[in-house]
Design a binder for these strands. Structure first.
Lengths: 317, 317
DNA sequence: TTTGCTCATGGGCAATTACTCGCTCAAGGG
DNA sequence: CCCTTGAGCGAGTAATTGCCCATGAGCAAA
């Protein structure tokens, strides 16, 4: 029998090395000799385990400062739930930290015994969070995407996170077989009338909990970067007072959805009720400050996962 | 900012440092400068966070459970090495899984550059393991059989694995040109006095590593099935408290070798030292539970390759 | 068969981290 | 008031780790 370097076996080895390193606390030299490989190979396995996200690190301590900030933000904006993670001063990443926290929150919901409907939006931050999810089986839950999965050029939209989610979570998934933006309100009506789309929309309206990213506007914001809007459309939107978007729904600094041609072309489902369900926004970072403030002010979301800097901004202004 | 040395504040700092280090992936230098402390202090905070178990590491791979079990078994019975493979619930085979794992372990030993003596026992599980071996050349190693290769009817004993091993591994092999059981202690003395046998016995005593199967007793255990013992001899043994055997050496539930006529007739070499060498037992399965527990309890072996179910049994009882 | 590509490997080295040591300081008991 | 104690600190040093590179095996296309 040949037992060559099959990929699966390699992942097993990576898991073993990662376990010995992080859980058992052995040095790479010890791991190497106990697995009969060189130290360098052991090091590679350990970093492979990290790269493949087999290793999950979480911090089990309520940092006082973060808790206070979270509480203050929750009260000020009358939110159901706020989570604040430490800021990383040296990093401009919009995902580090809150992705892990969001993954933990998603996991908490998915571990509930009673069946729930979990809705997801789109965006880089949310995708980073979903990528942190461990494998979970929860066949009684349903997971539904609020946004379409077809990019402007017709390809599958990369930041549609429901497929990443399906990789990790064993549950029924309902993607939205639509473009993100359509060409007119009429076309949206037509598409939303299709049976398949209708049923997905109905499920999304029943969501018990929703996770969404919050996008800033601007010519280097996600809507432009990903090619959903042209530069001049974006400028026009901003002239009209738009400061942010959730699932493509554009809102002004008060958090009110704008009554304009772009929002009429958004094919996403409506954001589920903030009265009867939990809608959790996941966002941090200076560029998103205004968008986040608008979203919580206008109750486009009723829960927030963010970082210290953002929380402080929300309290100061 | 006030940063007194209140214990709680210190833990908060530890949490923050640990978060920056493990979650955000900053170096201790960066953490130090961003928290306004020296690098050494940052290091102390990080290790404090670990010591206080603020940092939880989780490995998201099925192998994690096996490694946890292995570690627990290793500690409980003070063994040198334990390997646990996933149980296959649908199979009653006593070889699936552990044969591959054992083969990998044998391979690791054979790939060592310095010359070793590798001893093998007998049994179906061990044979299955050896059949998994790839072709290896290791002319500087020596491989020695602990058990005789002549079956009660005079034929070559089928489960004497050294010949299977010789098919795959290019090394010097030393079979034991003896029956497995002889008719009396005197005959054993005579046979063991022969030059050829003597030298093989001497080599076996120098074994660096030994692989043995663990046999359960009973009228459908290997000793009876293969015709080494009659049914009534077996019943007598079991009345005397015997629960298992390794290379024919019968032991009780404490793992103590029995002082009885059967053990006096065993022509196998003694099991090599568990003080100065590694003796790895390979066994799993419900029928062998008691035999395996006895073997590890009485240190007839100091290493074990088994499966999850068996490991759980060993921990529970 | 040759050629070119990919990938795992181990050596070497620089960066990073862990540990030891001697010192300071504050608290508290005699 | 002094001494002990214990925590914390910084310096220095040893250990560990991350990364680059040359090498060679495996493999597919030419």
């Amino acid at each position: 029998m040949v037992r060559k370097s099959e990929t699966s076996g390699r992942l097993d080895d990576a898991a073993r090395a990662g376990w010995l390193y992080y859980v058992a606390g052995r040095t790479q030299d010890e791991i190497a000799s106990s697995m009969g490989i060189s130290r360098q190979s052991a090091q590679r396995l350990v970093s492979l385990a990290v790269a493949e996200r087999l290793i999950k690190v979480r911090l089990d301590h309520p940092i006082a400062a973060c808790l206070e900030l979270a509480n203050a933000v929750r009260k000020k904006f009358n939110l159901k739930h706020v989570e604040v993670v430490p800021s990383d001063p040296g990093s401009s990443s919009t995902t580090v930290g809150i992705a892990e926290a969001a993954a933990a929150e998603i996991e908490r919901w998915l571990k509930r015994p009673d069946p729930i409907v979990l809705a997801v939006g789109t965006g880089r931050t949310l995708k980073a969070a979903v990528d942190q999810l461990p494998a979970i089986e929860c066949p009684s839950h349903r997971i539904v995407s609020l946004t379409g999965n077809i990019a402007p050029d017709g390809s599958a939209a990369y930041y549609n996170v429901i497929f990443s989610m399906a990789d990790a979570v064993k549950a029924r998934h309902f993607p939205m077989p639509l473009p993100v933006l359509v060409t007119s309100a009429d076309e949206r009506e037509t598409l939303h009338g299709q049976q398949l789309v209708r049923s997905t929309l109905e499920i999304s309206a029943q969501a018990d909990v929703t996770f969404v990213g919050i996008g800033e506007l601007g010519i280097d914001g996600p809507l432009c970067i990903d090619g959903f809007l042209e530069k001049d459309e974006m400028m026009e939107l901003m002239r009209n007072g738009a400061v942010g978007e959730i699932c493509g729904w554009v809102f002004d600094s008060e958090g009110k959805l704008l009554d304009n041609p772009i929002n009429e072309r958004v094919a996403s489902a409506s954001i589920p009720s903030r009265e009867s369900s939990t809608v959790i926004g996941i966002a941090k970072g200076k560029r998103k400050f205004k968008a986040i403030r608008a979203a919580v002010t206008g109750h486009q979301i009723n829960a927030l996962i963010t970082d210290e800097d953002t929380a402080e901004y929300l309290l100061k202004t």
